[in-house]
């Protein structure tokens, strides 16, 4: 749900299952064990997403889109940063700029898809279609660390975590919508998305080329603010990616520190 920063599978601790849940023919008890485990692992990853969901809920109530359509991003998009961009940009951007920006924010999922593709090879067809619906940052972080699970157990773990995030995300966003409609406009909650995105950029930075990409993206977008139809976002984004890529090649991806993206 939250954005940026590519958590590499190998950076997650490979905790092994203490329960024997990955037997070849799991019993009902073992299924319950793995589902409980999935929920227990998901909770700490969900907590940091709560303020994000609240900000999104407020932004939905203030969106230039009809509220029901802005709300439907929870079902059709289900990716916090892209949802926030979609509902916030509706006031000023053209259709094309809005779609291109939100799509660009979600491009990182291609990397998740590539990383998990081998694990999906021995999965049933229906799951290969359904699983990606809930492939958000948090699910990816959880399931990519679970290399020790059998195919059936991994699928159960994946779906439990995915459904958990989907349900709790929707509850938290609705809570934000209730909050948003009861807070007076003098509180300027409309500034919250910008603060949120700036924080996400910082948390997603793991190396110097990332810093170069972010600073270039912001600076070029600022210089291009007078470009019609909010085209500055895309000009800034292209400039930022290019600068980051060049810096990466030059610096060969030197790390900022050992701390990665916390979510």
């Amino acid at each position: 749900m939250t954005n940026s920063g590519m958590p590499r599978p190998d950076t997650y601790p490979d905790r092994t299952m203490s329960d024997s849940a990955d037997a070849s023919s799991p019993t009902e008890t073992q299924n319950n064990v793995i589902m409980r485990r999935a929920v227990r692992d998901s909770i700490p990853l969900f907590i940091p997403a709560v303020p994000f969901a609240l900000v999104l809920g407020v932004a939905i109530t203030e969106s230039a889109m009809p509220t029901a359509i802005a709300w439907s991003t929870n079902v059709f998009i289900f990716a916090g940063a892209a949802q926030l961009a979609t509902v916030s940009l509706a006031a000023t951007a053209t259709w094309l700029t809005l779609v291109a920006t939100a799509a660009a924010i979600n491009l990182r999922h291609v990397m998740y898809s590539a990383a998990l593709a081998p694990r999906f090879e021995d999965q049933p067809r229906w799951f290969r279609w359904v699983g990606p619906f809930v492939l958000i940052d948090q699910t990816f972080a959880l399931v990519s660390a679970r290399t020790e699970l059998s195919a059936d157990t991994w699928r159960r773990y994946y779906l439990t975590a995915g459904v958990f995030f989907f349900v709790l995300w929707n509850i938290a966003v609705i809570a934000g919508m209730l909050v948003g409609s009861s807070i007076p406009s003098e509180w300027r909650l409309g500034v919250a998305p910008a603060v949120m995105f700036a924080g996400l950029v910082v948390l997603g930075l793991t190396n110097w080329p990332g810093v170069v990409a972010a600073v270039t993206g912001a600076a070029v977008c600022f210089m291009a603010l007078s470009v019609p139809n909010n085209g500055g976002i895309l000009i800034g984004a292209v400039a930022g990616v290019t600068a980051g890529y060049i810096a990466d090649v030059v610096l060969d991806g030197r790390n900022l520190s050992t701390r990665g993206f916390p979510q």
């Binding site: 940026s4 961009a85 972010a214 600073v215 993206g217 603010l225 909010n230 976002i233």
Partner: peptide
């Protein structure tokens, strides 16, 4: 290149939202 899409788009978006069109 994909690694830098996130920081580049999000920081540009931050600036754009501050300007409010």
């Amino acid at each position: 290149a994909l690694r830098y899409v996130g920081p580049a788009v999000l920081s540009a978006l931050t600036v754009n939202l501050l300007a409010g069109g």
